[in-house]
Amino acid sequence: MSLAINDIHFGYGKVPLFRGLGATGLRRGTITAVVGPNGVGKSSLFRLIAGLRLPRRGSLSLDGTDLATLPQRRRHETVFFLSQHVAIRAALTVFDLVLLARKSGRGGRTTPDDLARVETILCELGIDHLSDRHVTDLSGGQQQLVATAQAFVREPQVLLLDEPTSALDLRRQLEVMELVRKVTIARNIVTLVALHDLSLASRFADRFLLLDSGVIVADGSPHEVLDGGAIEDAYGVGIHVERATTGTLMVDAYLRAS
């Protein structure tokens, strides 16, 4: 029971981005961190999985079913892509926005269960006190939490989170990632998270996919990928990896002398 990325070829215009990208066995109930330098195609990979872009070649399958064969609406119910944080300037309350994400899977209808689900998610993310506030009145971090609430309330089978913690303080980063882990296990879904903070990624992810030059250059447990030297090559930095007394991997990066 897993997500498979099979030999994906993709590019914008004539510029190729992915040249045979592949990773299989992204299991349900696990978190995979997608890491790599800026512009390497992490968001594009998520867009392909979500069906917002079409690959030139290759396929994506969930539990053996090709995602391309699903009707459009069903695909968007199955896979949810939370894009990188952008400020929303709409005259809508937090509750309105999260409910909107819930309703969109149901053709715009609202049921009492939808209201309950939204209330639940807001409580779990600790932002229930913001539910009546206009989203324009919120800080960047609070808006990011609202976006995360939209992702959870959709209850997808595949959750794709693009930098979900980039605007959050330390505590919120840990809380959100903790909740991502809890939801991933409780609902037995496939979760992919693009993260730049490798320490945070290694703390919560079961598996690392390192993207560089249009292919996956390293695939394995956080420990395997961080220790393998591929990270240094992809980012062009040196790293020290230490294991804290809690067992967490700590990644310390430094610029290499040229």
Partner: peptide, 9 residues
């Protein structure tokens, strides 16, 4: 925004 709306189907 377009990306978020498209993600909602």
């Amino acid at each position: 925004g377009d990306d978020r709306a498209a993600s909602l189907g």
